[in-house]
Design a protein around this nucleic acid. Structure first.
Lengths: 261, 261
DNA sequence: TAATATATTTCATATTATGAAATGACGTTT
DNA sequence: AAACGTCATTTCATAATATGAAATATATTA
């Protein structure tokens, strides 16, 4: 079977899932017509699928307007998905330790869909809000953890992901493919990556690779915060804690560092 | 249309969603046969639906075994659902309902800056003015909602907030730290708090905890009014409505009460 | 090597999803 | 108050699509 032909007999399900994915942070509430247009479905069909999704709690409707939005069951599902990931279990205590130690926000990220997906997050003591970014995806070339995830990729996989143009989020974003490859080489050599206001002005972070028992890099751990606090010499103080946390997690995943040089 | 007959033309979608819900914290990894049996589906049908879910990233398979588990897209979906269902949106209709039902004034409050901050308010029919207190902060130890917010705090955080002296606003205000700790224990046990003219003579209220998808208490909901109306037996009639409203809001935030005893 | 257990594919069939059109609900304009 | 507009919802004839029994592939165990 060709790899991206839809599996036969799944049209309705695929359409329903596409509807679910239409809800974004930018447009979290949509009405029937908007949804039908966005996914190019007949209004009636969209309505029927939405009714099914609603009956199972995956979407709800604002009581006043009758706009649809993602529902409680989606939240519960996401929670179960996070907890099912055993990476999450192992990383939790290390994230807490890292956040406590540095007073900055610590996250673990995995590669998902050519982006960096935040699996878990602990806010540093400077921030009140909790886990605002779990489940969010970030561009790989503009974050410290993203660069980690890229840097250790096998060449073929890397080539597939490194395609121009690289969106410039700030004046610091690396936008040239050669410059990025250069940076990734440095990252590999150092064993950590720094994200210096490349995604957002005012945000600086440090990331390090998490390896499984085969030595494959399966995730990245990072800490970051406001550039107002993290002046250059302070950023450097984050490197060791992050690398140590990454090493301890990797060890728990069965990774044994090679002794030789 | 009868209310719990499935909407026609949605069999496949409903079956797919049922499959998704089969993954739990206790059994986060399932193989084809287990899944098919659990939801009483033909093996082939289950397989086809799973393939569709997998192709959209809602489920993945452990690379070694070929067991299914919830995938990254489920995490991403959950994240978006959390952000789309903020407290304010979810609470609004429940506040209105509570105010209509009890004819008293209903509010939601969150912890902010060692005080209880009124996020939203709906006046009951007995009160003339409307939402006079949105954005106001109240002492934690002298209100029903404040005591709720304290009662479920982790010990360390509680210790940081419980510092003498506790200002006496009325003769009923709890001013001893030990008495307050005692009261908070009772509140936890009961699942509601009563504020009996502790902030202001003539004002009585009942509060209950609102939990997010992690089970953490993130807000409190309360109703209250004049002690002239709310004689003891009437106050007790508020408890159930408030607790129910809190429970419904929590459910919408993705909280799933534990089933076990 | 055979046997077992599981995943995957095939394919004829009719059940089920589909969408055009009609209707309903509700607010806004004339 | 009537006419209009917008959007959600229902109806229903039709065929496209989901279905499941059976066959096959793949891996693991005896």
């Amino acid at each position: 079977m060709s790899s991206n032909e839809p599996y036969p007999g799944t049209q309705a399900v695929l359409r329903a899932l596409t509807l679910l994915k239409t809800f974004t942070d930018e447009k979290p509430e949509l009405n029937l017509i908007e949804l039908a247009q966005a996914v190019d479905l007949n209004k009636t069909t969209a309505y029927r699928l939405l009714t099914a999704l609603e009956s199972e709690g995956l979407i709800t409707r604002a009581s006043e307007s009758d706009a649809y939005r993602l529902g409680p069951e989606a939240i519960a599902l996401g929670g179960r998905a996070v907890r099912a990931n055993n990476l999450h279990k192992v990383c939790r205590p290390e994230l807490e330790r890292l956040a406590a130690q540095t007073k900055e926000t610590a996250t673990i990220e995995v590669l998902s869909d050519a982006q960096s997906l935040t699996l878990d997050e602990i806010s540093g003591s400077y921030v009140v809000g909790v886990s605002r970014y779990i489940g969010t995806r970030w561009p790989l070339h503009a974050t410290s953890t993203g660069k980690i995830l890229l840097a250790y990729l096998p060449p073929v996989a890397l080539d597939a992901l490194l395609v121009a143009p690289l969106t410039a989020y700030t004046p610091h974003t690396i936008t040239s493919l050669t410059a990025l490859r250069q940076e990734l080489a440095t990252v590999c050599e150092q064993g950590y990556a720094i994200g210096n206001e490349e995604l957002e002005i005012g945000f600086i972070s440090v990331g390090a690779p998490i390896r499984d028992h085969n030595g494959a890099v399966v995730a990245a751990i990072g800490v970051g915060g406001s550039s107002a606090r993290l002046r250059e010499e302070i950023v450097f103080e984050l490197i060791d804690p992050v690398k140590s946390a990454a090493r301890r997690i990797s060890e728990q995943l069965g990774y044994r560092e090679l002794i030789e040089k």
